[in-house]
């Protein structure tokens, strides 16, 4: 590690401010705590909120994993992983089970997380009511008064137009029966996993909000009695590892309509293939292949 940066990039005053916001977020689960987001050496929209939260919670002994839509090897994930290798000197891993801190963009890992792990989300728009009511003064009042009728109207209009709730990602949830929260743009397939053993922290850099879910917090996806919430995924098995329970990405293969479905969680897929599972279009796993 070079000593050119303060540990984990941010100055100590900034980290204290973010740490205080994280503690209040944990004390009031689902409530968006305002914080003074800093300029980071990456543009807004590239995970500056998640990066600031991660920088404030990392310890020198941690192993970090970064995923973007489930993948460890995409630009966003690679650059953030390198950022923390350089500025915090922490170990990194692509294996979910080896990570102490996992920063994620838009997915929850397939493998269940443990009590000693921390999941940090990158959040673009933290306010679940924002597309229904653009004024911050009004949405703040709506949260204060627990006035969430508008959100149910939105879901109802989905049903009356499309015959089903068509929201498929960033599906709103209610936390401990009080705050309606945006779980960040994870697919609704991941919503049931929000009740987990690990601490979950959400950071929105541009919008300057931090919120949190302590372990085992009750998180309920909004729905109606006659139109219950349904987590959904592509009705297919992974073409590489054969898993029929994991969330899938559809990959276009050619101009003739050829396609394949593969696990969005690359570490989950790799470990299944390493264990000998082979999908319809897969080949037996070889170390360092592909």
């Amino acid at each position: 590690m070079t000593q050119d940066y303060n540990f984990a990039y941010l100055d100590e005053q900034t980290k204290r401010m973010i740490r205080r916001a994280i503690l209040k977020g944990l004390a009031v689960p689902g409530y968006q705590v305002p914080f003074a987001s800093r300029e980071m050496p990456m543009p807004y929209g590239w995970g500056t909120g998640g990066v600031q939260v991660s920088a404030s919670i990392l310890t020198p002994e941690d192993t970090m994993k970064v995923i973007d839509q489930g993948a460890d090897d995409t630009t966003n994930a690679v650059s953030i992983r390198k950022f923390f290798e350089k500025t915090a000197g922490v170990a990194t891993s692509e294996e979910t089970s080896k990570a102490d801190v996992i920063q994620t963009r838009h997915r929850i890992p397939e493998q269940d997380l443990r009590e000693d792990q921390i999941l940090v989300y990158q959040v673009p728009i933290p306010e679940p009511l924002r597309f229904l009511e653009p004024r911050e003064t009004e949405t703040r009042k709506m949260h204060a008064l627990e006035e969430y009728g508008l959100m149910h109207v939105k879901l109802y209009e989905d049903i009356s137009k499309n015959g089903a709730i068509s929201t498929s990602y960033a599906y709103p949830v209610k936390v401990e029966g009080r705050y309606v929260m945006d779980p960040s743009p994870i697919p609704k397939f991941d919503n049931p996993k929000l009740e987990m053993a690990a601490v979950q922290l959400f950071g929105a850099g541009r919008e300057q909000r931090i919120y949190a879910l302590p372990p085992y917090t009750r998180v309920v996806s909004l729905d109606f009695e006659d139109y219950p919430f349904e987590p959904s995924k592509a009705d297919h098995a992974c073409d590489l590892c054969g898993s029929d329970t994991s969330y899938l990405d559809e990959v276009i293969m050619d101009d003739a309509g050829g396609r394949m479905f593969v696990c969005s969680d690359t570490d989950f897929c790799r470990s299944r293939r390493a264990a000998g599972h082979v999908g319809a279009q897969g080949v037996p796993f070889e170390e360092d292949a592909a």
């Binding site: 303060n6 540990f7 984990a8 100590e12 980290k15 204290r16 740490r19 994280i22 503690l23 944990l26 404030s56 919670i57 990392l58 310890t59 020198p60 002994e61 601490v199």
Partner: peptide, 12 residues
Amino acid sequence: PQDAARAFRAVM
């Protein structure tokens, strides 16, 4: 920086 990071982990 390092001591405060470890302390905050326990506090959190």
